[in-house]
Amino acid sequence: MAARKVPDLPNVSKDDLLKYYREMLLIRRFEEKAGQLYGMGLIGGFCHLYIGQEAVVVGLEAAAEEGDKRITSYRDHGHMLACGMDPKGVMAELTGREGGYSRGKGGSMHMFSKEKHFYGGHGIVGAQVPLGAGLAFSDKYKGNDRVTFTYFGDGAANQGQVYETYNMAELWDLPVIFVIENNQYAMGTSVKRSTKSPTLWQRGAAYGIEGEAVDGMDVLAVKEAGQRAVAHCRAGKGPYILEVMTYRYRGHSMSDPAKYRSREEVQKMREERDAIEHVRDLLMQGGHATDEDLKAIDKEIKAIVNEAAEFAKDSPEPDPAELWTDIYAKVAPQTA
């Protein structure tokens, strides 16, 4: 087993490190539990786990302020937990129950929270990107300095609508941060089999959009890049692109034959680059936490996740009458 590189101790407070550790661990344990519930048949259909990518959302949320917005694709559980949505409501949507954020109408890919400024959860690759620009446009009308984190993957980066959006976002100086979560694989197709662009973020140059690539397995690096992006947008300089280099450990969804990459490749990332282990090392080496402290956090997180799972099992299925709600403002059910 290859050893992970011992990180330099950065200038970061103990509290911040513990916060990131806790948030990333929550996502990982939540996703592991979701995987279990899927295996038990309690979650049906599609379920895309975020395991491996935790530092991306946790780092960027650390750069966000109240009122900033976020919108993403179908690999969305991590984003919801990181922005403070209730794990119970997220898990109950995964199991399709009344207690879920979309009351069982959306499932894993389609959840929202106005309170947390989370605009979904979108099942079509790339379709959320123009929406993100629209959210930012609304903020511009309101005259505030809020920004919108618009997440998409390396796969979506090849969708035409992304580039239509780039052009408009720069044209109108929209305060939108395009976050490309480059986890190297668009389902089963690696980046090198889908583009010859050496980077994805540099494509923004054609539209005059500034950006950068950042190590997505390092939560502190992500946070710093996020702060640069946020400062750019808040200053009224228009959009910014962050290409966050990350890695998903699990399959694209729950039924993934995993024939497009080697077991060794995944194992190497887990052992050498894991974002949670990275923060764990920082905590231990900085003398900020003992093994016991971290075990206590583990226990605390486990309790939260178990509570969410229990809630998601116990919450009732939506009434069939729910089929007829939320389609138009007023709707008369069909019968036959």
Binding site: G96, K105, G107, L323, W324
Partner: peptide, 17 residues
């Protein structure tokens, strides 16, 4: 005519649709 109801394709209530 027997068809899907005029609703979005539901998640949990799939078999009602």
């Amino acid at each position: 005519r027997v068809a899907g109801w005029d609703t979005p394709y539901p998640h949990t209530n799939e078999w009602d649709y």
